[in-house]
Amino acid sequence: MTVVGDDDTASTASPGDSLFDRLRRGDAAAVARALSAIETGGPQADVVRGRLQSLDGAARVVGFSGPPGVGKSTLVNAYIDELRSQARSVAVLAVDPSSPVTGGAVLGDRTRMGNHTSDPGVFIRSVASRGHLGGLALSIPSMLDVLDAAGFDDIVLEAVGAGQSEVEISHFADTTVILSAPGLGDDVQAIKAGILEVADVLVVNKADLPGADETRRHLEAMLELRDTVTSPPVLPVVALHGNGIGAMTQAIDQNHAAQDASCGPQRRASEALRQAAIAELTRRIAADPELDRLGAAIHRGDINLADAVGALINRAASPDERNQP
């Protein structure tokens, strides 16, 4: 049986040894079961979430995102190798979209992350987005908590950077690495959708190809439009040959140094709350008939915008009062 971490006693479950105890020791089977429970939802998910409560975190969570074809899996593979050379244990969540029609998915990303199956210090899990269960914003933070509780030094979160849900996922990482590469057509188009805003480190992969400099200049020009004081570094990398991985790892380390890993679970809970609250508020406002009435009132000049916003949010916050005129 494959065991994560250095604890090779975990494979032999002693009598009275609970599944959660095994999870805490990094037993791969128990970790895998807990991840499935979270994904599926239901009573087992509630039990696992309950057991995770009040545990301090220790893992560093790095998110990798970028458009299809940019070489994310290859870069993640190189990053895993780098972490393993420092004897750090790694867990990877590789997120692929489910089919919006059937809900099914073919999860092939991990096969491009090299062959780590014989290394007990690497745990990789493919995650389908399962849109019908309310989105990844609910399951991903708890899955990260599971891996954190299992004692992994580092957790890598990999997602296709093509849509809003991936932007949401990136908020759960302590450090977000956004990838681009030359030759993907319109680079700028591929990387907008707000995702640049969340980048802590920007990587230009396939930097040995023609056009890499242009891609870098594009990114730097876009960064100048951000209204933040500091800009993330833009680093050239050739993931296939491992070039530039050292510098990327250093940039990730520097970003982590400013954060307290023990607060990871709490930060993830806050972020999940923020996203869930926004989603609920959005849903209520969209369903409120008062929206159109207030819009018409603004148009007529009967009310100013700020007052209308206040009124709408008050109604959303106290939905019971809606029926009372």
């Binding site: 489910s98 059937t102 199956t117 389908a128």
Partner: peptide, 30 residues
């Protein structure tokens, strides 16, 4: 593709997997 279209999640590998690798995949992917 059949299983995906029937709504299931398929972890797919290239050929020539070692038996030990298949066991690890089955374990981690539950």
């Amino acid at each position: 593709a059949f299983l995906r279209d029937a709504g299931h999640e398929v972890v797919y590998t290239p050929p020539w997997q070692e038996i030990s690798a298949v066991v690890t995949l089955a374990l981690q992917e539950d």
